[in-house]
Design a protein around this nucleic acid. Structure first.
Lengths: 341, 341
DNA sequence: CTGAAAGCGCTTACAG
DNA sequence: CTGAAAGCGCTTACAG
């Protein structure tokens, strides 16, 4: 157990000595501050590379400068759709000097997670699918540059948002189902309101039903994220006087459960029941599912959010709100008329 | 755009003033250092609560003390099994003063991610499904307390490991399939070796095949994590002279692809083909899959890893290696004989 | 354009 | 058991 000889960290001073300049000159090069001659910059850059220097995150944090690390907060890890968002953020970050750490909401509340990330002096935060109110997020945004993904708040001025056009998602779903000959179309929605993503989908669904002259069939069933309750609700859609011809589900996993309940009940999909999911996750493509779903391009959401966040960190004050257009990917679960396979 | 009046941070000095003690006394209470009287501790604790003080992560990092933050590195975000591990870590952490940040390997290499986390002065690292060699991990372990999940290295002394008994996984799969009357049992494995998790599963499969007198049917097909290639390999198992009666897949997602290919080929599961997955992810339970799978209790893996890491941070030097026992969860995909539904 | 000084909020020895 | 001093590696004004 001989103690290692303590691998002395390479600091800004070492670089300065090697480059034969003052250590504050090095700091300036690092921060891309102005007032640095090209020759100075070259010398310093060469020494940094030569010595393999990396700035200390902690030192930067404590002295009030940027840490060049941003945080990304996810509501959970189970929806593979979030991996797409992460991929988008990650690829957008590659072109910058920023790095990222992730936080995933588990037992603890979103607030506690965010609080602990605030303590780390990150330069900015991307929050995905937040359940906080706009007011709470605005308070947060006063402390740290913030971009929310999946939180429709066009009138918010304290932070940026990036969203799928969820109204359009609802509309496209109904339109497609109607084209396929379904009429009694229900929606399996979520009972927790979070920044109106779900509201928008519901609104789009309702508007499209009305436009199609199907107002009398409008039925939004709101269920919590609980397996048992999803199954019960799905069961109700298969029989009794609430029986549907098709169901639009707020997320793929719920749609897969509907398929499961239908399989158990020996109800044939798509003939007896059409099913549409949301997010176009990788399970949709499996033949046993062949689930029609809405693709909201997580990658694009992530990329745009990153772009906006970096702009904000670097000074932009005015809020921007970016909207991504969803695309319906038709598969067997709604192929009642056409020959889609 | 009036600048906010800069919300001065509450520091250890403020606490000291409020509690009427020296500021180093506060530091000691914070670090649970010895040489603190009960009355001192009480006064300080009261002031901390009263002022809502939280220690600065950066200041702790820079002054060489603990930051009380650990890092968790995941190879990707798509396998829902990782969420179970995270839940285990998270729940174990609740009983401690440590927090965590996550890093998920995306475009960047595992090495780059770990490097950037090292720069953050974290107190320890849990690395899940690492693709690094034992040597590289040992080098890393010299810099930071380390626990590896999913990296079988019983003779490693520089860090701890927590693993599922993957040999047993392979054995249980074969044993179950044989009981169900399958004989020509193939294995769909992964072509990238990472710390022998897959090796162990293969070894268990082979050993059990031999023990069952099925040596002549042993067939391990190694495929990369690429959809197209998985499908092709699955196709080969359904027809031709390599035709199998059952397939043991190294992970659920591959097994779901096998079910998909079988569905497309109108091969009936479980009669014509038995399928076993691994990880018992939430999709196994869906009726359209009804996938028999091995449960390696991600939650337990996460909890044990956390326990070991905290022990290590707090001084343990001797390596420990913890093994979790897998459990086969039988479902319809292998229900050829029995009445399992 | 370049450099020396002060300070960020802690921890770690070291004195009392 | 308690306290004053030095220092961690940077950034931010401020002088030259």
């Amino acid at each position: 157990m001989a103690k290692p000889p303590k691998p002395k960290r390479i600091t800004i001073h070492d670089v300065a000595k090697d480059a034969e300049v003052s250590f504050s000159a090095v700091s300036k090069v690092l921060r891309n501050a102005y007032g640095v001659s090209d020759s100075l910059r070259e010398k310093v850059t060469a020494s940094i590379k030569k010595l393999g220097y990396t700035p200390s995150f902690s030192a930067r944090g404590i002295s009030g400068g940027r840490t060049f690390v941003i945080g990304v907060v996810f509501p959970d890890m189970r929806n593979p759709f979030f991996a797409d968002i992460l991929a988008g953020i990650s690829s957008a970050l590659e072109r910058t000097t920023y790095q990222m750490v992730q936080g995933i909401v588990q037992h603890s509340t979103e607030g506690a997670l965010v609080e602990s990330m605030l303590g780390m002096h990150l330069d900015g935060l991307i929050i995905v699918g937040s359940v906080s109110t706009a007011d709470k997020l605005s308070v947060l945004a006063a402390k740290i540059p913030l971009v929310a993904i999946g939180h429709h708040l066009a009138d918010v001025t304290a932070f940026d948002t990036v969203n799928n056009d969820d109204f359009e998602s609802g509309r496209l779903s109904v339109q497609h189902l109607v084209e396929q000959g379904y009429r009694k179309i229900g929606m399996l929605s979520l009972d927790t309101r979070n920044g109106s993503v779900i509201d928008q989908r519901e609104a789009g669904y309702i508007a499209a039903m009305k436009a199609a002259g199907l107002t009398r069939y409008v039925d939004v069933v709101r269920v919590p994220q609980n397996l048992r309750q999803i199954q019960v609700a799905a069961g109700h859609m298969l029989e009794g006087n609430g029986k549907k011809e098709a169901v639009f589900c707020w997320t793929d996993y719920v749609a897969l459960e509907v398929l499961s309940v239908a399989a158990r009940a020996r109800a044939s999909v798509p003939d007896e029941l059409g099913v549409v999911g949301h997010d176009n996750t990788l399970y949709c493509d499996l033949d046993q599912n062949a689930l029609t779903s809405l693709d909201q391009s997580g990658e694009q959401l992530g990329q745009q959010a990153t772009r906006l966040l970096v702009e904000r960190i670097e000074g932009r004050q005015r809020a921007e709100h970016f909207l991504v257009h969803p695309r319906l990917v038709a598969r067997g679960s709604t192929a009642r008329i056409s020959l889609i396979r």
